[in-house]
């Protein structure tokens, strides 16, 4: 079984361009992959942007200290920084199996996520989190929890992503 910092490194390596723009995006990607059977072993709480695992954040930092990932912060609106993770060694060997999923399955799922904005991933992950926590009408609750972000268009996109991921 791979350690969590290896799993996070493989996910970054298999994502478009060998990088992930945004810590929030990385969190939601690992969460959604976990829902698809990744079995990373992470536990999630509900935070500002939906499901969040401190273990993923620590693992990404471990991967950085181990020289597996590069990390830099870029200025966003009002100079508020957002993080970018990039694979440190482009030739990094990604095994055929990552956690409970085959490598090609992970690649396929990441490919599905790439066309979605960080806010749409946040909405999809929040919907999925609420559904797995036995909330009956998760979509209605997401609209109430995130009224500014959950526009009908974004919510439709988020629901489509979940369907495409097989969730």
């Amino acid at each position: 079984m791979s350690e969590l910092h290896d799993i996070v490194t493989y996910i970054v390596a298999l994502n478009e361009g060998g990088k992930v723009v945004g810590k929030t995006r990385l969190q939601k990607m690992v969460f959604l992959l976990d829902q698809c059977g990744l079995e990373s072993g992470c536990s999630y709480d509900y935070h500002y942007y939906g499901p969040f695992s401190a273990e993923i954040a620590e693992a990404a930092e471990d991967a950085y200290h181990l020289g597996q990932l590069n990390y830099e912060e870029n200025p966003g609106f009002y100079s508020v920084p957002y993080g970018v993770y990039e694979i440190a060694r482009p030739s990094a060997n990604v095994p055929e199996t990552i956690g409970g999923l085959e490598r090609r399955t992970v690649e396929g799922k990441l490919n599905l996520m790439k066309g979605y904005s960080a806010i749409e991933l946040e909405l999809a992950a929040t919907l999925q989190y609420l559904q797995t926590h036995e909330f009956k009408d998760a979509a209605a609750l997401v609209k109430e929890l995130k009224p500014a972000k959950a526009t009908p268009e974004r919510l439709t996109h988020a629901q489509k992503l979940l369907r495409d991921l097989g969730l």
């Binding site: 929030t24 969190q27 935070h47 500002y48 954040a57 200025p75 009002y78 100079s79 920084p81 957002y82």
Partner: peptide
């Protein structure tokens, strides 16, 4: 104790610039 996600502008302390431009920035910068 939590700075793991990209905490957006709403979770930051934002300051108006003194130049009268109406622009605001994260206090860190």
């Amino acid at each position: 104790t939590h700075d793991y996600e990209d905490t957006g502008a709403l979770q930051k302390v934002l300051i108006g610039l003194p130049d009268g431009s109406g622009k605001i920035e994260d206090i860190v910068s």
